[in-house]
Protein backbone atom coordinates (compact mmCIF):
# COMPACT_ATOMS: atom_id res chain seq x y z
CA UNK A 1 0.00 0.00 0.00
CA UNK A 2 1.36 3.41 -0.93
CA UNK A 3 1.41 6.40 1.39
CA UNK A 4 -1.20 8.13 -0.76
CA UNK A 5 -3.57 5.17 -0.52
CA UNK A 6 -3.14 4.96 3.23
CA UNK A 7 -3.85 8.69 3.52
CA UNK A 8 -7.07 8.42 1.50
CA UNK A 9 -8.14 5.35 3.48
CA UNK A 10 -7.49 7.17 6.76
CA UNK A 11 -9.36 10.31 5.75
CA UNK A 12 -12.35 8.22 4.64
CA UNK A 13 -12.16 6.13 7.81
CA UNK A 14 -12.07 9.18 10.05
CA UNK A 15 -14.96 10.62 8.07
CA UNK A 16 -16.95 7.40 8.50
CA UNK A 17 -16.49 7.47 12.29
CA UNK A 18 -17.47 11.16 12.45
CA UNK A 19 -20.43 10.53 10.14
CA UNK A 20 -21.79 7.51 12.02
CA UNK A 21 -21.42 9.14 15.43
CA UNK A 22 -22.83 12.42 14.08
CA UNK A 23 -25.83 10.51 12.81
CA UNK A 24 -26.29 8.97 16.23
CA UNK A 25 -26.07 12.42 17.82
CA UNK A 26 -28.83 13.66 15.51
CA UNK A 27 -30.92 10.61 16.31
CA UNK A 28 -30.55 11.21 20.05
CA UNK A 29 -31.57 14.86 19.62
CA UNK A 30 -34.61 13.87 17.57
CA UNK A 31 -35.58 11.18 20.08
CA UNK A 32 -35.23 13.59 23.02
CA UNK A 33 -37.32 16.20 21.19
CA UNK A 34 -40.04 13.66 20.32
CA UNK A 35 -40.21 12.43 23.91
CA UNK A 36 -40.26 16.02 25.21
CA UNK A 37 -43.16 16.87 22.90
CA UNK A 38 -45.00 13.78 24.05
CA UNK A 39 -44.50 14.84 27.68
CA UNK A 40 -45.65 18.39 26.87
CA UNK A 41 -48.79 17.02 25.22
CA UNK A 42 -49.57 15.05 28.36
CA UNK A 43 -48.71 17.96 30.66
CA UNK A 44 -51.79 20.32 30.13
CA UNK A 45 -54.15 17.70 31.49
CA UNK A 46 -52.08 17.46 34.65
CA UNK A 47 -51.85 21.26 34.92
CA UNK A 48 -55.63 21.60 34.71
CA UNK A 49 -56.08 19.15 37.56
CA UNK A 50 -53.55 21.05 39.64
CA UNK A 51 -55.30 24.35 38.85
CA UNK A 52 -58.64 23.02 40.02
CA UNK A 53 -57.25 21.60 43.23
CA UNK A 54 -54.94 24.48 44.12
CA UNK A 55 -56.02 27.72 42.50
CA UNK A 56 -53.93 29.84 44.83
CA UNK A 57 -50.18 29.67 44.44
CA UNK A 58 -48.44 28.75 47.69
CA UNK A 59 -46.69 31.58 49.49
CA UNK A 60 -43.03 31.80 48.64
CA UNK A 61 -40.75 30.50 51.33
CA UNK A 62 -38.77 33.56 52.45
CA UNK A 63 -35.81 31.33 53.40
CA UNK A 64 -35.63 29.67 49.99
CA UNK A 65 -33.35 31.42 47.58
CA UNK A 66 -33.46 30.22 43.98
CA UNK A 67 -30.26 30.56 42.05
CA UNK A 68 -29.41 30.08 38.39
CA UNK A 69 -28.92 26.41 37.50
CA UNK A 70 -25.16 26.81 37.08
CA UNK A 71 -24.60 28.48 40.44
CA UNK A 72 -24.04 27.05 43.91
CA UNK A 73 -24.73 28.91 47.13
CA UNK A 74 -23.25 29.54 50.53
CA UNK A 75 -20.03 28.60 52.24
CA UNK A 76 -19.38 24.92 52.86
CA UNK A 77 -17.18 23.88 55.76
CA UNK A 78 -15.26 20.66 55.22
CA UNK A 79 -13.86 18.77 58.21
CA UNK A 80 -11.39 15.98 57.32
CA UNK A 81 -13.12 15.56 53.95
CA UNK A 82 -11.47 16.11 50.57
CA UNK A 83 -13.09 18.27 47.88
CA UNK A 84 -13.63 15.18 45.76
CA UNK A 85 -15.41 13.24 48.53
CA UNK A 86 -17.52 16.31 49.38
CA UNK A 87 -18.58 16.65 45.75
CA UNK A 88 -19.50 12.98 45.65
CA UNK A 89 -21.54 13.23 48.86
CA UNK A 90 -23.42 16.31 47.59
CA UNK A 91 -24.13 14.65 44.26
CA UNK A 92 -25.45 11.51 45.99
CA UNK A 93 -27.70 13.56 48.33
CA UNK A 94 -29.08 15.55 45.37
CA UNK A 95 -29.69 12.34 43.46
CA UNK A 96 -31.44 10.62 46.37
CA UNK A 97 -33.62 13.69 47.04
CA UNK A 98 -34.25 14.06 43.31
CA UNK A 99 -33.51 17.78 43.67
CA UNK A 100 -31.07 19.89 41.60
CA UNK A 101 -27.88 20.75 43.49
CA UNK A 102 -28.47 24.49 43.13
CA UNK A 103 -31.61 24.24 45.28
CA UNK A 104 -29.79 22.58 48.20
CA UNK A 105 -27.68 24.26 50.85
CA UNK A 106 -24.86 22.29 52.45
CA UNK A 107 -23.43 23.92 55.56
CA UNK A 108 -20.73 21.46 56.56
CA UNK A 109 -19.53 17.94 55.83
CA UNK A 110 -17.68 16.12 58.56
CA UNK A 111 -16.13 12.69 58.61
CA UNK A 112 -17.61 10.49 61.35
CA UNK A 113 -14.79 8.57 63.02
Amino acid sequence: MTLGESLILSVVGFGVVLGVLGLLALFIKAMARALYKKEQAAAPAVKEVVKEEAPVAPAKDPNKVELPADTSMGQLDLHDVSDRDAALIMAIVANKLDAPLNTLVFKSIKEVK
Partner: peptide, 20 residues
Amino acid sequence: NPASLLLGAAAQLGVYMAFI
Protein backbone atom coordinates in the same frame (compact mmCIF):
# COMPACT_ATOMS: atom_id res chain seq x y z
CA ASN B 1 -25.25 15.99 25.65
CA PRO B 2 -25.28 14.21 22.25
CA ALA B 3 -22.53 16.50 20.92
CA SER B 4 -20.22 14.35 23.09
CA LEU B 5 -20.43 11.74 20.35
CA LEU B 6 -18.47 14.02 18.04
CA LEU B 7 -15.72 14.33 20.64
CA GLY B 8 -15.61 10.54 20.88
CA ALA B 9 -15.28 10.39 17.09
CA ALA B 10 -12.58 13.08 16.91
CA ALA B 11 -10.54 11.20 19.51
CA GLN B 12 -10.11 8.31 17.05
CA LEU B 13 -7.63 10.48 15.11
CA GLY B 14 -4.72 8.52 16.56
CA VAL B 15 -6.03 5.27 15.03
CA TYR B 16 -5.55 6.65 11.53
CA MET B 17 -2.33 8.57 12.24
CA ALA B 18 -0.72 5.41 13.65
CA PHE B 19 -2.05 3.46 10.66
CA ILE B 20 -0.32 5.85 8.22
